[in-house]
Amino acid sequence: MRVELPDGSVRTVDADGIPVEEVLVLLGVNPVEVIVTRNGSLVPEDAVAAGDDEIRLVRISHGG
């Protein structure tokens, strides 16, 4: 699956049918700190991501 990280970089994760949280952990991202969209829709981190999904992560904290 294609994963866009909060900094705009893109990673490809070779996995299918795993919870979004596991994808985030693989990439070193804490699910508490991001909003996740799957194919453009907001999803909770226990949603399951398929191999052809596009995941986008948006960091929620921007201040000091």
Binding site: V58, H62, G63, G64
Partner: peptide, 17 residues
């Protein structure tokens, strides 16, 4: 989406967060 404050990474708050 908004930009991140450039000083964000210098703060103790960031470590606490």
């Amino acid at each position: 989406p908004m930009p991140e404050c450039p000083y964000r990474h210098t703060a103790l708050r960031g470590e606490a967060r």
